[in-house]
Nucleic acid binder design. Structure first.
Length: 588
RNA sequence: GUGCCCGUAGCUCAACCGGAUAGAGCACCGGCCUUCUAAGCCGGGGGUUGUGGGUUCAAGUCCCGCCGGGCGCGCCA
């Protein structure tokens, strides 16, 4: 929706008109309005006079004076004064601000929406964890960030497609399949060794149980058969050699599994995939994170999109063969080295289907593609960008947001995590421990490219230390006032607002006015944390107001005006919390 | 070694793409509950924005050097 009451753009128009009257050249200037930190500097400050002073060869303060003098008459501006080096400070009349209350109450859940995104189609991919085990706390951050960003962008007028790329075709899934089978063999009584780089979690055991229950001993094989041609580990060698040996060992086990099981390998594979994807989906749904599309990597092989994408690259001459492998000339598109698409063993790299996947995002209508990745993938960005460029798409329309590491703290000490032992903290653990609201909120409190220290005790604490409760409490307090009042909230829509005149009321009105722009900026900057800080701010102003003034007063006009104001505040608090996936409780 | 990201109060972090006296919370000190929820409010101390230069009316923000930290640099994903 487009606000009737957009003070900032109305003011911008007035200033532009004034500039045009002062000088034809000045009419070309871009008018930037900013909310001063210092209340003495008014509600909006404009620096256009300082920007223009040089090219107009005029003194900035004198120029500012001329612009102010040329301002068209408007009931919006209570006062405009020159300050500092040439700022024009605007004080908005309280009457103009009061109208925001009616605006908020009329718009309701839609207050804050703008058309800044102009309906641009965005593909936003986030989490996309391998379906080889439960989501852990880093995925949780990506989930919370991606979901909040998608909500904020949608509110700002973008059309957002939320995507999860399911890596159901790669080697990791084969390892999970083999892991499940090995556990199954152990359950069936076979004394097979379990490799250290197979999946260690208990969920593998659980899947093995299910396979055993469903298919009985039909997939059992002798240990000798399973271990045929499986090379030994080299635990006394150096780290690099040990890793190579481990890789070779698990690859041999996978090859044996495929050969010994035939079609049954696909059965275990399909079972494991379904269990893991269902589990992740349930986990995310419980976290308030939903997707428009779960996109299968395997489908790119099956429906020919992979061949199509590679065919395009080959036809355009962007590939070559060397050492038996197929290479992409990534260096011609800004990457630091060329990249392998198809290995000499005939297998495609992870990169190859990923190119097809990204191509499909654009082919399905995305104007801008945004990927949210972990920090360990940032070296991968130039490669994908190069491929997008090679396919004739604008690489500027491909944006990667890096979601940095999450460190957990308990009692001031970092929580030790060891992926190898399989005892990492899952998202589900975290949700169980601190609750969904605190988890969602804490996760987006930091800029995505900054490491996040997650204080478990703080997130759990039901105290004033906890910013989630601080905001929710403001919302609940307002509910409590209305419960005490007992009147009909619909009456507030038409309440007279003239009585809202004191400093705290002016502050609240202005903060409500800021909300749509906060949403828009958070969307354009990919920075949902800005919304969290705004809500803390709004809640703070409400708490101050609550403490300073009585709402349920004898003076009827004053009472209704104040109730209308806090109803509007509550609406905005709720709207903001909804975008962040945090509940807005009526009582606490 | 090379590339990217980061360095702001004792701690965790903001700062509206270059604006005015760098702001919150925690911690510390002092006040406020017979009045709509004290999970709250009011007040106080605390800073050479890692460092040295540069750009300009104006730099935490932009450019260069250095110091310190994180991550990446596979025919892995």
């Amino acid at each position: 929706m487009i606000l009737a009451l957009d003070i900032k753009s109305q003011l911008t128009d007035l200033i532009r008109a004034a500039c045009a009257a002062v000088s034809p050249q000045a009419s070309e200037l871009s008018i930037v309005l900013e909310r001063p930190k210092n209340a003495q500097h008014g509600d909006y400050a404009c620096n256009v006079a300082m920007q223009a002073a040089k090219q107009l060869k005029r003194n900035p303060r004198e120029l500012a004076q001329a612009i102010v003098a040329a301002l068209p008459a408007s009931c919006l501006i209570g006062k405009a004064e020159i300050a500092g080096a040439g700022f024009i400070n605007f004080f908005i009349g309280i009457g103009a601000k009061q109208a925001v209350v009616r605006e908020v109450l009329a718009a309701g859940v839609r207050y804050g929406e703008t058309d800044r995104g102009r309906g641009q189609k965005i593909s936003l991919e986030f989490v996309s964890s391998n379906p080889t085990g439960p989501l852990h706390v880093a995925h949780g951050r990506a989930a919370a960030f991606g979901a909040s960003l998608a909500n904020v962008m949608a509110a700002a007028g973008f059309v957002v497609q939320r995507e999860y790329y399911v890596n159901d075709a790669g080697r990791q899934m084969d390892i999970l399949t083999a892991s499940t089978w090995l556990r199954y063999l152990q359950l069936a009584g076979a004394d097979v060794p379990y490799p250290p780089n197979a999946y260690q979690g208990d969920y593998v055991q659980a899947m093995a149980q299910e396979i055993l229950a469903q298919y009985g001993a039909r997939m059992a094989r002798t240990v000798t058969a399973v271990m045929t041609n499986v090379p030994a580990l080299k635990e006394d060698a150096c780290e690099k050699d040990r890793e190579t040996a481990r890789d070779a060992r698990i690859d041999a086990l996978i090859a044996n599994a495929k050969q010994l099981l035939g079609g049954d390998f696909r059965l275990i594979h399909a079972h494991a995939l379904k269990v893991q994807v269902d589990d992740m989906r349930a986990d995310l749904t419980e976290f308030g994170v939903d997707y428009d599309c779960w996109y299968s990597e395997q489908s790119l092989y099956d429906n020919g999109l992979l061949d199509q994408a590679l065919g395009k690259l080959i036809a355009a001459g962007h590939t070559y063969e060397e050492d038996g492998a197929l290479w992409f000339r990534a260096t011609q598109f800004g990457d630091e080295k060329d990249r392998v698409l198809r290995r000499s063993n005939g297998q495609y790299t992870y990169f190859a289907p990923d190119i097809a996947y990204h191509a499909s995002k654009y082919d399905r209508g995305a104007e801008v593609v945004i990927d949210l990745w972990g920090p360990d993938h940032h070296g991968y960005i130039p490669r994908v960008r190069a491929a997008i460029a090679a396919l004739g798409r604008d690489p500027e329309k491909f944006i990667v947001i890096i979601s940095q590491l999450v460190k957990l703290y308990r009692e001031g000490q970092p929580v030790k995590l060891s992926t190898r032992a399989g005892n990492y903290v899952t998202l589900r653990d975290l949700r169980t421990e601190v609750g969904r609201d605190a988890a969602r909120f804490f996760y987006i409190l930091r800029k995505s490219d900054q490491q996040l220290d997650f204080d478990l005790d703080l997130a759990k604490s039901q105290s004033n230390d906890n910013p989630v409760y601080y905001i929710q409490y403001a919302h609940a307090r307002i509910s409590s006032v209305f419960e005490r009042w007992g009147g009909d909230r619909a009456l507030l829509q038409d309440a007279k607002l003239d009585a809202l005149t004191n400093e705290r009321e002016a502050q609240l009105l202005q903060t409500l006015l800021d909300y749509p722009e906060v949403i828009a900026n958070a969307a354009l900057d990919y920075a949902p944390h800005a919304l969290a800080y705004y809500l803390k701010d709004l809640a703070g102003h409400l708490h101050s107001y609550y403490n300073a003034e009585q709402f349920l007063v004898d003076d009827d006009a004053l009472k209704l005006a104040r109730l209308a104001l806090i109803a509007a505040v509550q609406q905005v608090l709720r709207n903001g919390l909804v975008l962040l996936g945090v509940s807005a409780p009526e009582r606490m």
